[in-house]
Design a protein around this nucleic acid. Structure first.
Length: 571
DNA sequence: CTGGGGAAGGGGCCC
DNA sequence: GGGGCCCCTTCCCCA
């Protein structure tokens, strides 16, 4: 009986346990279901978000792909373009920057028609006659339209119909060149500070290769000479290698001021600026722009007090997208005309040896140096900042809201130097058109356009006989005497004939015995500046050319060559 | 080394 | 305003 009761009790407990267990399971299932539902909702939301993000990503990829395709097209266009023009890419964006207009001016950009080369259009190779729609930035005195002094400046940028976004083009070019390994010479030039004394060079063969060239002052001069630098001072090379950068598009800043205006210099030269000039167009045409940021970052010359403040603003991150620009100033008075000074280090090798107007020349070169400073950083920004996305962004809203405070101040100094006298130095012709690269003033638009080819490397005139290219038609014409054999200048003393008047003039020193170039160290005199320059190397002991056969060193490559021919011709 | 010429780059000026 | 010329300067090369 007791057993029966015990069994019944156990059965009841078991049933109760089962019920409880079932209830627990149900409860658990309910909780799980609820959580699962919530979880599913969350998952679906996440999936939606993922889809949205994926869509955005696809859009971005499409955009990039499209721009890459455009870039490819650009590359092809570039490839069919004269090589000398490619460098222009590097100039773009030079004129970008932040700044403000000095009070009382209103500025706007307006299209202008003129014969200037545009990067996004083919160049007329022969006699470059293509016209292009360009932009001019005009700054008008605010009072011209009853805008009160100090009124905020308005910058409006307009874009010609059908005109491609220059920034876009720049990007494309930069990108196009990005895959091209820069010539060694360029790398060398760009990254290696140029010592004042020449490094030794052993010439292995009769002709120096690019590397050797880049390592010599002489050749360096050549680089500069054929490129953007007008001067040949080796010191300038430090700058010369860095980017003169502006903008080939030849847009112009037109500074119109109906009344004489005094421009005060706010920026002083103590403001350090990374400076640098561009490489020769001859070489930079092959250069990878991508290298430029490195160059610019590694090349600094803070010692140059005469930097152009404009450059600093011009080259800021929000640089304008312009390839070339001219600042036009109606009238500018210059205050505080500081005499042009030249650091001893900057002094060309033959300062003090030269002819009468060499000093002017030096001044001019210095001015150009300043000009090159203008270009300085821009390439770094130009290339560093160029990404495809940015190309599609709104055209530089900073267009023009740059500089003026600084620009026009620096312009004064630059022009002073270039003219050797200053803006108010009695030059009868008003030089309202300023080069955006060096701030040099010119009396008319065409002159400044031609001048800017110095910076842009544009050579629209090509010789049909030898494919050489020239920036000016008269230079082409002069060059063609080489082919025609025409020598219109004859010496009255010896009937010798010359193709250039200057050659005749120089030649006539043979008859007159005139030797205007004298060495201050040994009082030797020379009829030719180049001979003095070469002679000075004797004093300076620069012998960078080493014979690989005997180790003998020479100051000139030609000496080494002669030596090798005479002594080691059998080798 | 020195002397000299060829050729080219660039600025200024004139027509 | 554009073309052309003159001039100066520079680099390269050769004798």
């Amino acid at each position: 009986m007791a057993n029966v009761n015990c069994m019944g009790f156990h059965t009841q407990i078991a049933s109760i346990m089962e019920v409880l267990a079932n209830a627990a399971v149900v409860e658990i299932c309910k909780v799980v279901d609820d959580d699962y539902a919530v979880f599913r909702v969350e998952i679906s939301q996440s999936q939606k978000e993922n889809r949205g993000l994926r869509r955005k990503l696809q859009l971005l990829e499409l955009k990039v792909a499209r721009e890459r395709a455009e870039r490819t097209i650009r590359e092809r266009v570039l490839a069919s373009r004269p090589s000398s023009v490619k460098i222009l890419d590097r100039y773009r964006g030079m004129a970008r920057g932040e700044g403000h207009f000095t009070g009382g001016h209103r500025s706007f950009v307006k299209p202008a028609e003129h014969n200037a080369w545009r990067d996004d259009q083919p160049i007329a190779i022969n006699e470059g006659t293509g016209t292009s729609t360009q932009h001019v930035i005009v700054i008008e005195p605010a009072d011209a339209e009853a805008v009160g002094p100090g009124a905020s400046s308005l910058v409006k940028q307009e874009r010609t119909e059908g005109e491609e976004d220059p920034q876009h083009s720049r990007d494309i070019h930069a990108g196009a060149a990005a895959g091209v390994a820069p010539p060694v010479a360029m790398v060398d030039l760009a990254t290696t500070p140029q010592p004042r004394t020449r490094p030794s060079i052993t010439e292995v063969s009769g002709t120096l290769n690019a590397v050797l060239k880049s390592e010599t002052d002489t050749e360096t001069h050549r680089l500069l000479h054929t490129g953007f630098d007008h001067g040949s001072d080796p010191e300038r090379l430090l700058l010369g290698r860095l980017g003169c950068s502006p903008a080939p598009d030849s847009k112009y800043l037109l500074y119109e001021n109906s009344s004489p205006r005094t421009v005060h210099s706010h920026q002083d030269s103590s403001d350090a600026l990374e400076t640098g000039n561009d490489l020769s167009r001859s070489y930079t045409t092959e250069m990878d722009p991508g290298i430029m940021p490195l160059v610019l970052e590694t090349q600094t010359d803070l010692s140059r007090g005469d930097w152009n403040p404009f450059s600093s603003s011009v080259c800021s991150e929000e640089c304008l997208d312009k390839k070339g620009e001219v600042i036009v100033i109606d009238e500018v008075k210059v205050e505080g005309d500081a005499p042009l000074t030249c650091n001893a280090d900057e002094t060309p090798i033959w300062k003090g040896y030269s002819q009468g107007n060499t000093s002017d020349f030096l001044d001019c070169r210095d001015g150009l140096e300043t000009s090159l400073n203008v270009a300085t950083h821009s390439p770094s920004h130009v290339f560093r900042d160029r990404d495809p996305v940015s190309t599609s962004m709104a055209p530089s809203d900073s267009h023009g809201r740059v500089f003026f405070d600084q620009v026009f101040n620096s312009n004064d100094r630059a022009r002073d130097k270039v003219r050797g006298g200053g803006a108010a130095s009695g030059n009868s012709k008003e030089k309202r058109f300023l080069c955006m690269f060096c701030n040099k003033g010119f009396s008319c638009l065409q002159k400044v356009e031609i001048h800017q080819r110095v910076h842009t490397g544009e050579n629209p005139f090509n010789c049909t006989q030898c494919e050489k290219r020239f920036s000016r038609q008269d230079h082409l014409k002069r060059h063609q005497r080489v082919h025609t054999g025409e020598k219109p200048f004859s010496c009255p003393q010896c009937e010798k004939r010359f193709s250039q008047a200057g050659d005749l003039k120089r030649h006539q020193r043979v008859h007159t015995g005139e030797k205007p170039f004298s060495c201050t160290q040994c009082h030797m005199r020379f009829a030719l500046a180049g001979n003095l320059k070469m002679h000075l190397k004797v004093h300076e002991g620069e012998r960078p050319f080493t014979c690989m056969h005997c180790g003998k060193r020479f100051s000139e490559r030609s000496y080494l060559r002669t030596h090798q021919q005479k002594k080691h011709s059998a080798v």
